[in-house]
Simulated scan of single mutants.
Amino acid sequence: MTNPILLDIPSQLETERLLLRAPHRTGDGNIVNQAIRASFNELKAWLPFAQKLPAVEETEINLRNAYINFLKRESFRFLIFHRKTNVFIGTISLQGIHWGIPKGEIGYWINSKFGGNGYMTEAVKAVTDFGLEQLEFKRVEIRCESTNLKSRAISEKLGYELEGILRKEDLSADGSRVTDTCIYSIIS
Score class of each variant (00 low, 15 high):
1 M>E: 11
1 M>N: 14
4 P>F: 01
4 P>Y: 02
6 L>H: 12
6 L>Y: 08
7 L>Y: 11
7 L>V: 05
11 S>K: 15
14 E>V: 12
15 T>G: 02
17 R>F: 00
20 L>N: 07
20 L>F: 09
21 R>A: 08
23 P>I: 03
26 T>F: 13
26 T>S: 12
28 D>T: 10
29 G>F: 03
30 N>A: 13
32 V>G: 00
39 S>Y: 05
42 E>R: 09
43 L>K: 04
47 L>V: 04
48 P>W: 08
53 L>M: 14
55 A>E: 15
55 A>F: 11
55 A>L: 15
56 V>I: 15
56 V>R: 04
59 T>Q: 10
60 E>G: 06
64 R>P: 05
65 N>L: 13
67 Y>H: 12
68 I>L: 11
69 N>K: 14
71 L>P: 01
75 S>K: 09
77 R>L: 14
79 L>V: 02
81 F>S: 07
84 K>G: 06
84 K>R: 15
87 V>Y: 06
91 T>K: 08
93 S>L: 05
94 L>T: 09
95 Q>M: 13
96 G>N: 12
98 H>R: 13
101 I>P: 09
102 P>G: 12
105 E>M: 07
109 W>S: 00
110 I>E: 08
112 S>G: 07
113 K>Q: 13
114 F>C: 04
115 G>F: 07
115 G>T: 15
120 M>A: 03
122 E>T: 05
122 E>R: 01
124 V>L: 03
124 V>H: 01
126 A>K: 02
127 V>I: 08
129 D>I: 10
131 G>C: 04
132 L>N: 02
133 E>T: 15
135 L>P: 01
138 K>R: 15
142 I>R: 04
143 R>M: 08
143 R>E: 12
144 C>R: 04
149 L>I: 14
150 K>L: 10
150 K>C: 09
151 S>R: 00
155 S>D: 08
159 G>N: 10
161 E>F: 08
166 L>D: 00
166 L>Q: 05
170 D>L: 02
170 D>S: 12
174 D>Q: 04
175 G>S: 05
179 T>R: 13
180 D>A: 05
182 C>Y: 01
184 Y>E: 10
184 Y>F: 14
